[in-house]
Structure formats: structure tokens, C-alpha cells
């Protein structure tokens, strides 16, 4: 469970171009559900996602993670581990074990194979190569990419690249998937396919947090909660009835 309390994020603080991206955000994100952050460009969705995903720290407020086993971290108290106060080293550790990221542009590394792209997040973890390989091959199979395993990512179609990005996000077996505008560069068919994969992952017990202003995403079956944002604040928080 992720709990956000009075989150505020200011960019360029104290400068003439100071900009408040988020203010007064308090949310509780339940595990095993699909939550969509909806809102226009500049509403603060991506900033909120990067704070939840430990890529950035809030200017003020607290983010607490509970219910996940985090090796190397102090024993989680009943209230969970407060991520905002963790040193950089631990924050990276939390990020790579807890969250899998899917970016708007997919951000795959050109010039290397599909399989290598999928394995990349696991390299610094120091697991044995055969273990990594087995896990990558399992993901390739799951996402119907076995034939493209040795192909370079620049040769892939949009749909294939999207599946590689999802497989990479799952490489470290994270409990939470974070996706930022994942359907921005996809046609309707591929967008629906993406949401079908998310529904499958939810069924497997994963938590998904998606930022999107695409109706194909926030109106998709399997979405449990839609949080509408505007000007860095939560405008509406709606639970979707099954």
C-alpha cells in the first residue's frame, strides 16, 4: 500500500521561474488494483508518478510504502517505510525492487537486442546469468516476443516495442507497475491490447498506476480507480464499480 500525505512539489524553488507542480496531494493507493491518473497536459500526473516511483522527492509531504518486503531496509514498521526520508542508495534499491516503469516513448536502448533490453534492469542486481536468462525468456514467451529475442529494438513495430517495454518493466518482478502515457504513441487496437495486458497483470496480483488522458485507458475494463487532476491538485477521485 502506498500512502501519500500532503505532497507538494515545487520546481526551481526560489528562482524567478519557480513553478508549483503539485500541491496538497493526499492519497492512498491500494495494492492489487489499477489506478489511473487522468488529466490534461501540465496537470501534474507525470510529476506525481515520478514521486510515487521514487525517481524524485517531494518538496514537502510524506510517501509511505507498506506491505512489501524490502531487502536491506530497516524492518518495516506497522505504518510502513517512509520513502521520502530514505538516502539515495536505499531509494534506488526500493525503486528497482518495487516499481517497474513503462515510459511514454518506451525508452528502449537502440543497437542492442530485445532480450538484452529486457534484462537491463536486472544487471546491477548481480543475479546469476542463467537465472536472468530464464526469466527474460519467460517474459519473451509471455509477451509473444520469442521470435524477436535477438532482433534489435529499432526493427520492431510499435506494438512489439510496447510489449518489450512492459516485459522490461517486469524483469525485476516488481509488485507495482508505473506507466506514463503508455498509449500516447499507439493506435486504438494496440491501446486496447495494452490495457488487456494490464488487466492480466492485475489478475496476477500486480498493482498498476497509470497516468493518461486517453479514454481508452481510463474507461477500460479492469480500471479500479480514476483520479482526475488539474493544476497540480486532485479534482476528482472516483472508484469504478466493477
Amino acid at each position: 500500500m502506498l500512502e501519500l500525505t500532503q505532497i507538494r512539489k515545487v520546481f526551481n524553488g526560489g528562482l524567478h521561474n519557480e513553478f508549483t507542480a503539485l500541491t496538497g496531494i493526499s492519497l492512498t493507493i491500494q495494492p492489487g488494483l489499477v489506478t489511473v491518473l487522468k488529466g490534461a497536459s501540465g496537470s501534474g500526473k507525470t510529476t506525481l508518478l515520478s514521486l510515487i516511483g521514487c525517481m524524485d522527492r517531494p518538496t514537502s509531504g510524506r510517501i509511505t510504502l507498506a506491505g512489501h518486503q524490502l531487502p536491506g531496509l530497516p524492518e518495516a514498521s506497522a505504518g510502513g517505510v517512509e520513502l521520502t526520508g530514505l538516502p539515495e542508495r536505499f531509494l534506488t534499491e526500493v525503486r528497482r525492487r518495487t516499481f517497474g516503469f513503462i515510459f511514454q516513448q518506451f525508452h528502449l536502448l537502440k543497437g542492442i537486442s530485445v532480450q538484452e533490453n529486457i534484462m537491463l534492469p536486472a544487471y546491477p542486481m548481480g543475479e546469476a546469468h542463467p537465472v536472468l536468462l530464464a526469466r527474460a525468456q519467460q517474459l519473451l514467451e509471455t509477451f509473444n516476443l520469442t521470435r524477436q529475442a535477438t532482433a534489435k529494438v529499432e526493427w520492431l513495430s510499435g506494438g512489439e516495442a510496447q510489449r518489450v517495454a512492459i516485459a522490461r518493466a517486469l524483469m525485476n518482478e516488481p509488485p507495482v507497475i508505473i506507466a506514463d502515457e503508455p498509449t500516447a504513441h499507439l493506435d486504438s487496437h494496440l491501446s486496447r491490447e495494452f490495457m488487456a495486458i494490464i488487466a492480466r497483470l492485475k489478475a496476477e496480483g500486480k498493482t498498476a498506476i497509470i497516468a493518461s488522458h486517453d479514454p481508452l485507458v481510463y474507461e477500460a475494463a479492469g480500471v479500479d480507480r480514476v483520479i482526475t487532476m488539474r493544476d497540480g491538485r486532485v479534482e476528482e477521485d472516483r472508484t469504478v464499480e466493477p
Binding site: 525503486r95 528497482r96 536502448l109 537491463l120 534492469p121 546491477p124
Partner: peptide, 8 residues
């Protein structure tokens, strides 16, 4: 990208 996917 490497940093974003969990590299220190």
C-alpha cells in the same frame, strides 16, 4: 534511461 530503470 538506465537511471530510470533502476541503475545507480
Amino acid at each position: 534511461i538506465l537511471k530510470a530503470i533502476g541503475w545507480e
